[in-house]
């Protein structure tokens, strides 16, 4: 329907680029107290459930449920023991790219994963760390001000990589996706959520949400950057993820595309059924799995 992250709190905005240089050192005791105060206020904004990110807060439970479901499905398919639902991600190393204030990272960590949250905006990392510091249940979560390309160069490897509401803001999506693919272990998962390039999406996200209702600042979205599910599928076919025939598991070599739609009546996001056509019209979730053997 529309991007759930307003521009001033988003992945790569001018505002945060402005702060990015000094904010990296926030964790150190020498940091300027005025800056801490500034980030505290932004932190309150990020985590205000009634504020601008209300829709993103609401989106979190259904997307976490879907992520758990995919991982459990694949474990089941390959005969691995299942975990209890509340520790469904136990033992997994997960990277959350574009973690923002840490909404998704925290949930994944509570479900047992060892989570690394990265964001290109240092201020987001500062916000996420402040919020984490209040929560005694988040010992297996670290935040880094880093780009996925840096992690790829370092040779980091993860069981799952998430890039939620990021792709539509990236300048070079192919390079970005390649770096994501590099840091995933063989047999690991990639979870994306983004907006499709359809007239419907243009209407909802730009014509209505930005220019008419001003739910999101005008200029947040660039229609040309929207990516269709078919383009993602083609990209991963070319990469060899979706054509390989490993272990005769047809399910594991097909991408999954699920539309996700906001229903203002009850304030819930709902996922479309697999293969349903409205799923590809606007906001959607995308899953693909890296082959176990190259």
């Amino acid at each position: 329907m529309l991007s759930v992250i307003p521009r001033q709190l988003g992945y790569s905005t001018r505002l945060f680029r402005h702060f990015a240089t000094n904010a990296e050192s926030l964790a150190s005791p020498t940091v300027d107290p005025i800056e801490i105060e500034h980030f505290s206020k932004l932190s309150a904004q990020w985590w205000d459930e009634h504020g601008e990110l209300k829709m993103l807060h609401r989106m979190n439970p259904p997307r976490v449920a879907w992520l758990k479901e995919k991982i459990a499905e694949l474990r089941d398919l390959e005969g691995e023991p299942s975990s209890p639902s509340w520790k469904a991600l136990g033992g997994l190393r997960i990277l959350d790219i574009g973690c923002g204030g840490g909404l998704l990272s925290e949930s994944l960590a509570r479900l047992g994963a060892s989570v690394t949250g990265v964001d290109a905006a240092a201020s987001n990392i500062a916000i996420a760390r402040i919020h984490q510091s209040h929560d005694h249940s988040l010992n297996n979560l670290v935040y880094r001000h880093a780009a996925v390309e840096t992690l790829a160069v370092e040779g980091q490897q993860y069981d799952a990589v998430c890039a939620m509401e990021v792709l539509e803001h990236v300048d070079e999506p192919k390079n970005f996706l390649k770096s994501c693919a590099e840091v995933i272990k063989p047999g690991g998962h990639l979870f994306l959520s983004t907006i499709s390039r359809t007239p419907f999406a243009h209407l909802l996200t730009i014509a209505i949400a930005e220019n008419t209702l001003h739910l999101v600042s005008p200029g947040t979205h660039n229609y040309d950057k929207f990516i269709r599910p078919s383009e993602l599928i083609k990209f991963f076919k070319d990469l060899g993820w979706l054509t390989g025939t490993y272990e005769d598991r047809p399910n594991a070599q097909e991408a999954e595309v699920r539309g996700i739609m906001y229903f203002p009546g009850n304030g819930d996001w709902q996922l479309s059924n697999r293969g349903s056509s409205w799923g590809e019209q606007c906001n959607y979730l995308f899953w693909a799995r890296k082959p176990k053997t190259p």
Binding site: E49, H50, H57, R58, N60, P61, V64, A65, S85, W86, L89, E106, S107, L108, A109, R110, L111, D135, N266, G267
Partner: peptide
């Protein structure tokens, strides 16, 4: 219970609102 299954922070409105509603 649903909140714990989603890894949600149990003190948040996302978890508690359905109760009130």
């Amino acid at each position: 219970d649903a909140g714990a299954q989603h890894g949600s922070d149990l003190g948040t409105q996302v978890v508690l609102q359905p109760y009130a509603r």
